[in-house]
């Protein structure tokens, strides 16, 4: 008996390979591109595409840790508020005369602290779900931002700070390079390290993971802290692009981010999904928005489309492929597992 034998009975099937969610995403992506470029001659213009990419990539930094959080079967809806708080703290400090470099570091620290508090509350009070904890901190973080700045906007950052959001390296937007680097780092972390393996273990079966010596609490805190840190990174890019900041920046980002993650094939039940899917989904939604903007679809309709996309994305896996047709999953057979 060769226990190391891969499952050869089914063999490699092209059908199985292409039925992977990521390929579906790429297909949709191509479809969106085709339709968009058909509808608007300006769509496939390099400058336009580049500018669009620079516009939508700021929130993409949060998508990366959100993938980890959703694989853990948790959720964090406070990320947008963390963006606002860390941006406001940075701007406020700078306005008070703190050097920009220090303000940036503090901005990152504030973001990480916000994430750490989320993680700490979630592991310390296990009877509370991540939904309710981050719902509360979502209000608190933004509330603190309002306390600090009230309804003012703060801007006038040094010229070099603009580079983050507007700069190019060898003709490639800096923000894109930064995102790609971060995405690769997160993908490696998730798929190639013991840390990532443990995240999947917790998402699949938290009890068995704990019994197997996985430091569940520590990993959760680290992941939530990472989410806070990346929210602060988003705050940097966003502030750089806007040139100023207000307490109500990044409103609704949590929805976009969660929509991208879920669309990327990461199951909200935890334990399943890959980083690459979410990254494709970032570009898919980004270009969809850009394309719709070009053909003058109002922003409100975009709101609806994103909402529907989110729901569509979580609904699709619930419809199972059976034979040739799509069969609806019977809720009666499915185990009833619903905690928020």
């Amino acid at each position: 008996m060769d226990l190391l034998r891969r499952d050869n009975e089914k063999g490699f099937s092209w059908k199985g390979f292409f039925l992977q969610w990521e390929w579906m995403l790429i297909l949709i992506f191509l479809l969106v591109t085709a339709i968009n470029s058909y509808l608007s001659p300006y769509y496939l213009n390099y400058d336009n595409l580049r500018d669009a990419t620079m516009t939508f990539l700021d929130k993409a930094f949060i998508v990366l840790p959100m993938v980890l959080i959703i694989i853990l079967a948790d959720i964090d809806i406070s990320v947008a508020s963390t963006v606002a708080l860390s941006a406001v703290v940075m701007a406020d400090l700078y306005a008070m005369g703190v050097p920009m470099e220090v303000a940036i570091l503090i901005c990152l620290a504030v973001g990480a602290l916000c994430g750490f508090i989320n993680g700490w509350l979630i592991v310390r009070f296990k009877e509370l779900s991540a939904v309710i904890v981050t719902l509360a901190t979502m209000i608190i973080y933004r509330g603190i931002a309002y306390m600090m700045l009230e309804d003012q906007a703060v801007g006038q950052f040094p010229e070099w700070f603009k580079f983050l959001g507007w700069g190019y390296v060898f003709g490639i937007p800096f923000i894109l390079i930064a995102f790609v680097v971060c995405a690769i780092a997160f993908a490696l972390l998730l798929h190639k390290t013991t840390f990532g393996r443990r995240i999947y273990a917790i998402g699949n079966n938290p009890t068995a993971s704990r019994f197997s010596g996985v430091q569940v609490d520590r990993i959760k805190i680290i992941v939530f802290t990472l989410a806070g840190l990346m929210a602060a990174v988003t705050a940097l890019f966003l502030t750089s692009r806007m040139g100023s900041t207000r307490p109500n920046v990044a409103t609704g980002y949590e929805l976009d981010v969660i929509a991208m993650v879920v669309l990327g094939g990461i199951s909200t039940a935890g334990g399943k999904g890959r980083m690459i899917g979410a990254v494709i989904a970032v570009f898919l939604i980004g270009y969809l928005r850009y394309g719709l903007g070009l053909i003058n679809i109002p922003a409100q309709a975009l709101l609806i489309i994103i909402g529907l996309l989110l729901i569509g994305a979580v609904m699709v896996p619930k419809l199972k492929i059976r034979g040739s047709g799509w069969r609806k999953a019977k809720p009666a057979d499915a185990p009833v597992k619903r905690a928020l």
Binding site: T268, Q300, I304, G307, L310, V314, M315, L340
Partner: peptide
């Protein structure tokens, strides 16, 4: 959406929030 497809209420209501809000603006 929640009952028939078993979508997490937080996700479903977050999505519908956008849809309803967008409809209001429209």
């Amino acid at each position: 959406l929640v009952a028939r497809f078993g979508i997490l209420p937080i996700i479903a209501s977050l999505g519908m929030m956008n849809v309803f809000r967008g409809l209001t603006f429209m």
